[in-house]
Amino acid sequence: MTDLLLQCLVAGRHAAIPASDVQSVIEIEEITPIPGTPEFILGLTALRSQALTVIDCSLALGLDKTVAEDDQRAAVVEIEGHLYALLVDAAYDVGEALSQPVAVPGGFGAGWQRAARGMVETESGPTLLIDTSSLIAGPMVEAA
């Protein structure tokens, strides 16, 4: 398997997004908030003439908010015709997947389990492969 992965840091953990999904990695300067949306939707940002919905990956996983840094990096992905900017702690290189995504006995932990396709081996060690369409659905609403 020679899938390319965008390696990044989400909530302090190594994670990867299939590079074929990623159109580009951008630095987000300004986010226009959208009142009334779930917390993990930070708002909109403009990429040329297109508006991207900015998703905080950590919040979308049900984890703590992404630490605000000076240059916020986000991976631009297109899902069902809509463009999203997935905000990550840091974005690294594009690397090769060295294995098929595999499940780990006991799971990856709450939050991660839902949005992860599995664990893949990379040159920099085991990494969680993120399923972007599950990610943008946001954390599950707890059944009352």
Binding site: G36, I41, H82
Partner: peptide
């Protein structure tokens, strides 16, 4: 332009 389904859900 259209907006993402999650934003549509707000019905605002």
């Amino acid at each position: 332009k259209p907006i993402a389904p999650a934003v549509m859900e707000t019905r605002l």
